[in-house]
């Protein structure tokens, strides 16, 4: 079909198209554009994760890093025997490791939940 055969097709459009349709604004685009609202979403994720990290560190800080201080305050504790071993040995030699694992496991679950919630909020809108 050659270009000059027959009447030329004419497209009929409304003049309003050039004004643009109201576009849906997503949170991801807000974050990408670094708008105020995007920053607020980011700050809330950051705060949630930081609070979680702080909680984990405080737990370990008091219960494990606090031990020398407890032993220093109550020297009698070091003479207590558990399962035939001195208490400091039971705590520092064996008990701390499962404790670390539990703290880590709870942390990973909570951190992934925070991220999941963030992804939900950001992608639902």
């Amino acid at each position: 079909m050659s270009p000059d055969s027959g009447p030329r097709r004419v497209r009929v459009t409304s003049p309003r198209t050039s004004a643009g349709r109201p576009r849906r604004v997503t949170v991801t685009s807000e974050i990408d554009a670094q708008t105020r609202i995007g920053e607020i979403y980011m700050a809330s994720l950051l705060r949630a994760q930081l609070r979680l990290a702080g909680l984990a560190i405080a737990t370990v800080g008091v219960l494990v890093a606090g031990l020398p201080f407890f032993f220093w305050l109550f020297p009698g504790l070091t003479r207590v025997h558990v399962l035939g071993m001195p208490l400091p040995w039971v705590l520092l030699g064996f008990a701390v490791y499962p404790f670390f694992l539990v703290v880590g496991w709870v942390y990973v679950r909570a951190a992934e939940r925070n991220e999941h919630d963030f992804a939900d909020v950001v992608e639902r809108s």
């Binding site: 560190i57 370990v60 701390v96 670390f100 703290v103 880590g104 951190a111």
Partner: peptide, 18 residues
Amino acid sequence: MLWYPVGWTAGYLMLLVL
């Protein structure tokens, strides 16, 4: 001296959360 192995493990916990 048990604080060395305990601390080397706890270091990984700090690494994990931070």
